[in-house]
């Protein structure tokens, strides 16, 4: 058994004539929390979809527990996905089901457990995210942070080996952000899982992850532990970690010369 539960090997992916990833290599060791960071539109979420088999690479491959994801049949892919849990950016809770039913959903779909055991499992997971008391609420009655925690309980309902988080801190207040940080780390350690966190929130992420990949322009531009990256003098890492407006990642989207455009008049 390999030390790495997920391996991305020379992966290139693009669509509509635009190459989003150009020969990316990454490894995700078992038991670790690894962050993929980069600016908006750098293809971080797409990487999660490639790992989950929702997209297929143009070149290269993604291996999960030794199996090449894009070569699986539909049944094989579903078997592979049962090893994974994914927290979507805004939770993606089923709006016609209560909090309890949302967490019970994967358990009911994949096991034949009696209702009493389903209840025990659901309560255990909801207790872990601190929302046992909210079990009868509907998703529309939850705050953003609560929805994210319910979605996390649902993602870990079947004790997956890999937990993927897509922008888990987006739109959260500082308290909820701290709660989610602690949950990611504690659930990872309690379940003995591997977590992949896609985010661009540097300061929160550096407090609990083991390793970080920086993605920009379709390639991995830097990688290392949070300490190494904090002290890095690479221009991109420095700009990103310190939140500078301009640098290797330009502030402006590519455009013709501003003065010439203004003088040309209203020809937009």
């Amino acid at each position: 058994m390999s030390d790495n539960i997920v391996e991305i090997d020379n992966l290139s992916f693009g669509y509509k004539g635009r190459l989003l990833h150009k020969g990316i290599n990454m490894v995700f060791p078992r038991g670790k929390v690894v962050a993929i960071m980069g600016g908006s539109g750098s293809g971080k979420t797409t990487l999660l979809r490639l790992i989950g088999g929702q997209l297929n690479p143009n070149v290269g491959e993604v291996r999960v527990d030794g199996d090449v994801v894009h070569k699986q049949s539909l049944d094989g892919l579903y078997q592979l996905r049962r090893k994974m849990g994914m927290l979507f950016q805004f939770g993606a809770l089923f709006t016609d089901l209560s909090v309890y039913e949302n967490v019970a959903f994967p358990i009911r779909e994949h096991t034949d457990l009696p209702e009493s055991m389903v209840r025990d499992f659901v309560m255990l997971k909801l207790n872990a995210v601190g929302l046992r008391g909210a079990r009868n609420l509907m998703p529309t009655e939850l705050s953003g942070g609560m929805a994210r925690r319910v979605a996390l309980a649902r993602a870990v309902a079947l004790d997956p080996q890999i937990i993927m988080y897509d922008e888990p801190f987006a739109g959260l207040d500082p308290i909820s952000m701290g709660v989610v940080c602690n949950l990611i780390r504690s659930l990872n350690d309690a379940l003995g899982a591997t977590s992949i966190v896609v985010t661009h929130d540097v300061h929160e992420t550096f407090t609990f992850v083991d390793y970080v990949y920086f993605v920009s322009g379709g390639v991995v531009v830097a990688e290392g532990t949070p300490e190494e990256l904090t002290n890095s003098d690479k221009p991109f890492v420095h700009q990103f970690v310190h939140g500078e407006a301009d640098g290797p990642v330009p502030f402006h989207y590519p455009a013709p010369d501003y003065k010439r455009e203004v003088l040309r008049g209203h020809d937009v």
Partner: peptide, 18 residues
């Protein structure tokens, strides 16, 4: 649009079946 179908797929549940 709210990724509920994607979430279902990632839970190894076919949205077509469900």
């Amino acid at each position: 649009a709210t990724e509920q179908l994607s979430a279902m797929e990632m839970m190894a549940v076919s949205p077509v079946a469900r």
